[in-house]
Amino acid sequence: MLAALAGNLAIAAAKLAAYVFTGSSAILTEAIHSLVDTGDQGLLLLGMRRAGRPPDAGHPFGHGMEAYFWSFVVALMIFALGGAASVWQGLHKLAAPAPIERPWINLVVIGLAMLAEGSSFVVALRALNRIRADTPLLRSIRRSKDPNIFSVILEDGAALVGLVLALAGVSASAFLGLGWADGAASIAIGLLLVLVAAFLANETRSLLTGEAAAPRVVARIRAVLESDRRVAAIPEVLTVHLGPQEILVGLTLHLQDRLSRQELETALDELIGRIRATDPRITRVFMRPTAGGETDPPLARRPQAMAK
């Protein structure tokens, strides 16, 4: 991500230089876009670092939610600094169209930016492909619990589409004499960023408010419990992401009446180990065991009944 941040900063500088020499509104909008992307990646890095801090007295379950908070801040930045500023710049250019000077500079910068953004997009897409299997791309983005992956994919994808719009606007304005096209491209890029920001904000909002683990994770947990003869029924399987790589699992189990107390404790220890083995992100498992349909409070509170 550090390489992507440095690359975005270089691209932003090139776009700003191109704007100074050509006066293109679309290329200025793209420069703003790249500057916002650079700031966003810096915030995501900050979120990753803060999320990796160990648990403490004030945050006994760790700081994993920090990654989601900073991703939400990124969405607000894209909306306010990227989308709104781009639309305003486009409206300003539409109100007072001006010819683009030396358009070839814009075309060269846009081409180089496409190569850089395309490379970053491919790297992020490969990272997502390793975990999404046969799930459609959009659905896998919505199901992903790691904002560092889906934020980069959304930003780089929007950057590529934005560059295509800028290319169309610059070309139409410079070579077809359509003075309004440059400003229209800026507005289109701004609206694109607003849509991406809204989508990203909604996804991180869901994670911030306590999103459950993916259905396949829950299914594997249930499969482990259902395959054990000591488990009579599974009234409740609750999961929540405490961060991209941390899942808390809470269970209510009806265990067989014939089991002794020692056998119950052994069963709980073994089940916890098998559940945690289903997914390395499962860091905590809390069980509420019952027998004969009645809760046994002393056992439910014993340290053996939970994984820390």
Rank of each mutant, 00 (worst) to 15 (best):
A6H: 09
I11P: 00
L16A: 10
A17P: 11
A17V: 10
Y19H: 09
F21E: 11
T22A: 07
G23T: 09
S24N: 04
A26R: 00
T29C: 08
H33R: 05
S34Q: 00
L35C: 04
Q41K: 01
L45Q: 01
L46Q: 08
G47W: 00
G47D: 05
R50L: 14
A51L: 05
R53G: 11
P55H: 05
A57H: 10
G58N: 11
M65E: 12
M65Y: 15
Y68S: 06
F72T: 03
L76R: 10
M77G: 14
F79D: 03
A84K: 10
W88R: 02
W88M: 06
K93Q: 12
L94I: 11
A98V: 12
P99G: 12
I100W: 06
R102C: 09
R102P: 04
I105W: 01
N106K: 04
L107K: 01
V109D: 03
I110E: 04
I110V: 14
L112A: 07
A113W: 07
A113M: 10
M114S: 13
M114Q: 12
E117D: 15
G118Y: 00
S119A: 15
S119H: 15
F121N: 00
V122G: 05
R126C: 08
R126A: 12
R126H: 12
A127M: 00
R132V: 11
P136K: 02
L137I: 08
R139Y: 14
I141D: 00
R142M: 15
R142D: 15
R143V: 11
N148R: 15
S151N: 10
S151K: 04
D156R: 04
G157Y: 03
G157C: 06
G162V: 03
V164F: 14
L167Q: 05
L167W: 04
V170T: 11
V170W: 10
A174M: 13
A174V: 08
G177W: 13
G179V: 08
A181H: 01
A188F: 02
G190M: 06
G190A: 07
V194M: 03
L195N: 08
L195M: 09
V196D: 01
A197I: 02
A198M: 07
L200H: 02
T204I: 04
L208D: 05
G210K: 04
E211H: 13
A214P: 01
A214H: 09
R216H: 14
V218E: 07
A219N: 12
A219Q: 13
I221K: 06
A223T: 13
V224G: 07
V224E: 03
L225G: 05
E226S: 13
S227G: 14
D228F: 07
V231R: 09
V231E: 06
P235R: 02
P235T: 02
V237D: 03
L238T: 12
V240D: 07
L242C: 10
G243N: 07
P244C: 07
L253D: 02
L253Q: 02
H254G: 13
H254Y: 12
Q256S: 14
D257Y: 08
R261K: 15
E265S: 01
E270N: 15
L271I: 03
L271V: 01
L271R: 02
I272V: 02
I272H: 00
G273W: 02
R274P: 13
I275N: 01
R276E: 01
D279E: 15
V285F: 02
F286T: 14
F286W: 14
R288I: 14
P289Q: 04
G293V: 13
P297I: 01
L299Q: 08
Q304D: 14
